[in-house]
Simulated assay, not measured.
Amino acid sequence: MSVGAALEQLLRLIHRRAMRLAALPEDERDSHYDLIRLSCCAAAEHIGQSPDRAALTANDMVEFVRALVGIIEMGGGPDHGRNTDQRPPVRHFGGQENGTTRI
């Protein structure tokens, strides 16, 4: 698997997790954030990070997921309610849809 494909898969996984967390009441989310922190910390140590650095990496990941959950909660835009297992539609710029002509 290429690095790009692995990153895309990881981001989709994080997005799905954040969508599930956003659906939970706030008081039920902390245990899920703790699990994310623990698994991320273990993974970071597994790839060779020191325990201190792994803890920082895991905390950064939890904060990223928390921010994503906040964005999802504030959302409700065109993607609201879409199945999170589907890829988002690709926007093409410079074509008919935005009124310009491609040369």
Rank of each mutant, 00 (worst) to 15 (best):
G94Q: 06
G94R: 06
R20T: 09
I14C: 04
N83K: 13
A23D: 15
Q9F: 12
E8V: 09
A18V: 07
F64I: 06
L56F: 00
V62P: 04
D79P: 00
H15D: 09
M61A: 14
P88F: 06
L35D: 14
H92W: 12
V62D: 05
R37V: 00
L56N: 01
E63I: 03
R12G: 14
A5H: 06
Q49C: 05
M19R: 15
I47E: 13
C41W: 02
I14A: 13
M61Y: 03
I36S: 10
L35C: 11
R91S: 10
G75R: 04
I47G: 03
A22T: 10
R16C: 10
D60P: 00
A55M: 07
A22E: 09
A67M: 08
E73P: 00
G48E: 13
M61Q: 10
V3M: 15
G76R: 04
A67E: 13
I36F: 08
R12N: 14
H92F: 14
L7T: 08
M61S: 03
D30I: 02
G76M: 02
M61V: 10
A58V: 02
R66K: 15
Q49T: 01
M74C: 00
A5S: 12
A42N: 05
C40V: 12
E28T: 10
A54V: 01
A54P: 01
A44T: 01
M61P: 00
A42V: 01
R20I: 06
G70Q: 10
G70M: 14
A22G: 07
M74L: 01
G77L: 03
H15S: 11
I71C: 05
R17K: 15
R29D: 05
P51C: 02
A55D: 07
F64P: 01
I36M: 14
M74R: 06
R91W: 07
A43S: 15
G81L: 07
E97T: 14
H92S: 07
G70N: 14
L68R: 11
F64L: 15
V69M: 03
Q49E: 11
M19D: 04
H92M: 11
D85I: 00
G76A: 02
P89L: 12
E26M: 08
S50K: 09
I14T: 09
E28K: 15
L13M: 14
R66E: 13
E97C: 08
V62E: 08
P25A: 15
R82W: 04
R20G: 05
E73L: 11
G75I: 00
G48H: 12
D79R: 04
G77D: 12
V90F: 02
I47P: 03
N59K: 03
A58C: 04
D60Y: 03
A42Y: 02
M1N: 05
G77Q: 05
C40T: 08
L10E: 09
L35F: 06
P51G: 01
L7Q: 10
Q49N: 10
M61I: 05
N83Y: 09
Q86H: 11
G48I: 05
S31Y: 10
C40E: 08
P25W: 08
L13I: 14
A58T: 02
L68A: 03
V90L: 08
Q86S: 09
R37P: 00
R17D: 12
L10R: 13
L13V: 13
L11I: 07
L11C: 11
D79A: 10
C41E: 09
A22F: 07
D85N: 06
F64N: 11
A58Q: 01
R53V: 04
A43E: 15
A67H: 10
N83V: 03
L21D: 04
L24Y: 12
L21K: 06
D85F: 07
